[in-house]
Amino acid sequence: MIDKKNIIRLGLILLVLAVLTILNNTMGKYEIRILNLAGIYIILGLSLNVINGFTGLFSLGHAGFMAIGAYTSSLLTMSVIQKESNFFVEPIVPWLANVQIGFLPALLFGGILAAVLGAMIAAPILKLTDDYLAIATLGFSEIIRVIFTNTQSLTNGALGIKGLTRYTTVHYTWGIAILTILFMFSLRKSSYGKALMAIREDQTAAEAMGINLFKHKLLAFTIGSFFAGIGGGLLAHLMGTIDPLMFRFLLTFNVLLIVVLGGIGSISGTVISAIVVTIMLEWLRFLDGVIDLGFMTIQGIPGLRMVLFSLLLMVVIIFKQNGLMGRDEITIDSLGGFFARFRKKEA
């Protein structure tokens, strides 16, 4: 069935792809890197949004799930020679030494492993709610990081993995980001998505309406960690280097910042905020360097831009708790309504 909305949707996607292709061919290396990061942060933001936004479970374990995806896909795409040169302290476990698969299957595998481990971690702690759940997930994320630091023959420990082939391109990041966006809208519309939102709105009532809380919360965690794993894999092959320190709480904080600023529970809000925050994170780098104010010079303070983001987060939480979009979405209908109003004003 072809209806008008689907045609508009397809048109919008093609438009985005065209713009991306143009940007990809005209921009410099540094700008393309930012473009890639924006795509990855869209995926990561949306994945956290399923858990925190749709289902209302406050999880802070995202960096851990990303680490699983990043390490899994990296170990799968590395060639035998790359592995040998990386693992010089202790040789890599024999069953991984000679494995090398394509980038896309490796990403998928990373996502699946993250999903499975995410579900396994979530299962015992889903009875917890609110801040208790946040603390437990944060703890698990740190545990994953510590394990990765100490499994020398599997992850190369604290040395990390260097010299990964940089497979990640704008096609991969934005292609997957668009697929993720479509998936999220479809999930939101489906009976399962609505069941997740019912749990967010009132857990007791949701249970009384026959919704299996455990099953649906687990579902949210599994979806969230799957996309987090994919995002982690993309990030690893963009950076070319990964080590356990990369997946500290700060990374979860960046993703959480995107979701809160965009509006917890809103897909469009998360997408817009992912793009804006990624660009700002780069653009504000001058704050970390030496700033000459004319009458005085501030010596470089690394991390000053994060102070600004923390302030921004505080301001949003105090004055505009619902973020940019609240729980609303930009849809074809709302766009149509917006343009109709716009035309009226002109007339």
Binding site: S191, Y192, K194, A195, M197, A198, E201, D202, T204, A205, A206, A208, M209, G210, I211, R327
Partner: peptide, 25 residues
């Protein structure tokens, strides 16, 4: 099925969605 003493609707969702969710099971 039950109702609650202090109304427990899915507040942020539409009237239709509230009823449709009860069909999910």
């Amino acid at each position: 099925a039950r109702t609650f003493q202090n109304i427990r609707l899915f507040k942020d969702l539409s009237v239709l969605d509230n009823v449709m969710i009860a069909n999910h099971l």
